[in-house]
Design a protein around this nucleic acid. Structure first.
Lengths: 341, 341
DNA sequence: TTGTATGCGTTATCAA
DNA sequence: TTGATAACGCATACAA
């Protein structure tokens, strides 16, 4: 007789034998205890404990065509914004029955598509993807996926399934309106990487400038280079050279804003009197800097938490009424836009 | 006859049928093309393409008791240090045959143990865990694991299997020696969270102070609170209150160092003349701040890259000669310790 | 180099 | 409520 080695650990039949029941009863007792009588359930639980039985996830996934994996795809691993959201996802899943499979799309739509394909091929319990700018093919794959799908970080009117985030356009607009209200006249924009969400922030900013009659295309400085504090420091120097009368900037993100502050300090430019600065996301450091930095606060943690909550609800058969959840943002006004003259 | 639906996508038998061969030949052609004749391999590849066949990873894992998963366990998702390493791991695995399953132990050894158990139960291709402070049980599990195991971020003389990192003790010592060399007299230590690696940095720092005859236990200020820029700003204030003659500090990490700089700026204390500051890790922002901040540069990206390289080598049957790789660190001297008087 | 028969550990299906 | 049996899709063991 042929023999294979297997994983060498107890299987469901070992449990069944020890408990004196059939394997399917053990399976049921583990997945939906209400389907098994108290008597047998107790015996089974005992056997499980004694044998230290752990279900083999691959066997389960093969038989049921459904794994306990939640696929999460983000465009960056080093961006604090996604790190916070990821942390929330993990916290919310804590000791739950799910495993996270994490993909890094590096802001490349084709990479995202490849990852979606790979993840879906494993029959995930759910999918979480960042943003709303999937390729048509990705969207199609996700629309046909046999699991809940949540798009995070943004909101829009055409969700694949569910959505949690906020409006980057409105965030950018709020930043611009704030600078206008503070009386700044020549207001610039600093943007790095310029992914789709950054573009929408810029659009919101432009909208605000137009409303205030202060839109100056020359004051918009963007680059596809990835964002960093050093870059912010450089860019503010370039933009001031281009227009010495620049008196405020909205930065696409907080790294650039902090860098801009450093750049001003090096050049002896007073913030906020000579130059007002607004960042985006309100990372923790923004409140600690000197001067402290105004920013648009976004609740990345809440986004991750809510996404998992919606998935759990959906999986439990209580689909959330609102498919699109706008968690908003909040302007945190600080010293960098607090003019004293 | 009984029927089940399955996943509804092409299986290896579909490919086999279309190519006019047996399933096992397809299996071989896909896993080790050299074992199949050119002729059949071509036919099989064609069939794969036409059917858009993607192997079912769970079925494969079940049959072979080995999955294509690489389990990675880190203590924090939001700490830039691990983010850089993770990014390297993903980059190195790019479009490879592996999937990353990521676990967050939150600096809790028991959580790490639970994660190791879960991951090992899936028969991973390899495991990557942070640090060397696993529980005895975790260590035992990993020692018996049927796959390569790499401990990252640190080095030590007792690897479970392989190790890539650097000596935190030496890093802390180098920071302390640098401050002594610069002529600072009353040198403090600021530490948050104080995980095992932070403790070793502190030990190295203490060693340096002892060597210089300047060890002052009162100047060591630590907290279990998690690290942040704001905290650095607060702590430096507290420590200066405790000892007004304090003239330098080594911060457990860069967030604290930046916060300490901000705290000094708020209090009107000149850095580096009145207070020297050294951070740890040398995050990107350290070079951009004003004044720029001295730090111990560590190559987190290289650590992740090397870890995966070692795994690949091991898996391909070329076990690396050196089981423990020390990637070292480098003191980046900047303005924050550049006294002008 | 290729194929046959079977097992991997679980769950869906059907029957009692 | 419980059980017998047949899938799930692939890879191992063995034979040719």
């Amino acid at each position: 007789m042929r023999k294979r080695k297997g994983a060498g650990r107890p299987t469901i039949s070992d449990v069944a034998a020890k408990a004196g029941v059939s394997t399917i009863t053990v399976s049921r007792a583990l997945r939906d205890p209400s389907k098994v009588s108290d008597h047998l359930r107790r015996k089974i639980n005992n056997a499980v404990r004694k044998l230290n039985y752990v279900p083999h996830s691959h066997a389960s996934a093969l038989a049921s065509t459904r794994s306990n994996i939640i696929g999460v795809i983000v465009p960056s691993l080093t961006n604090n914004v996604f790190a916070d959201t990821l942390r929330a996802i993990y916290d919310e899943l804590y000791q739950g029955a799910f495993q996270v499979q994490l993909g890094n799309s590096r802001y490349v739509a084709a990479d995202e598509e490849r990852l979606v394909r790979t993840f879906l091929s494993q029959g995930p319990s759910a999918m979480i993807v960042a943003g709303t700018d999937q390729t048509d093919a990705t969207r199609e794959l996700l629309l046909n996926a046999q699991c809940p799908v949540v798009q995070i970080m943004e909101v829009g009117d055409d969700p694949i399934d569910m959505m949690v985030g906020f409006s980057h356009f409105e965030g950018g607009k709020a930043a611009g309106m704030h600078l206008l209200k503070k009386g700044y006249k020549r207001i610039g924009f600093l943007g790095a990487r310029m992914d789709p969400r950054s573009h929408r922030r810029l659009e919101g900013f432009v909208e605000a400038m137009r409303l205030g009659g202060r839109y100056e295309p020359d004051l918009v400085m963007t680059t596809t280079a990835s964002s960093s504090v050093s870059l912010g420091s450089e860019l503010i120097g370039q933009l001031r050279k281009r227009d010495p009368d620049l008196d405020a900037i909205f930065c696409n993100n907080d790294d650039l804003a902090l860098g801009a502050l450093f750049g001003c300090q090096k050049a002896g430019i007073s913030v906020p009197d000579e130059l007002g600065i607004v960042g985006f996301n309100d990372l923790e450091m923004m409140a600690a800097s000197h001067p402290s930095l105004t920013s648009i606060r976004t609740d990345r943690y809440a986004i991750g938490k809510r996404a998992v909550e919606m998935i759990k609800a959906e999986l439990e058969g209580n689909p959330p009424e609102e498919k699109v959840v706008d968690l908003g943002f909040e302007l945190q006004e600080r010293e960098s836009t607090l003019r004293t003259r």
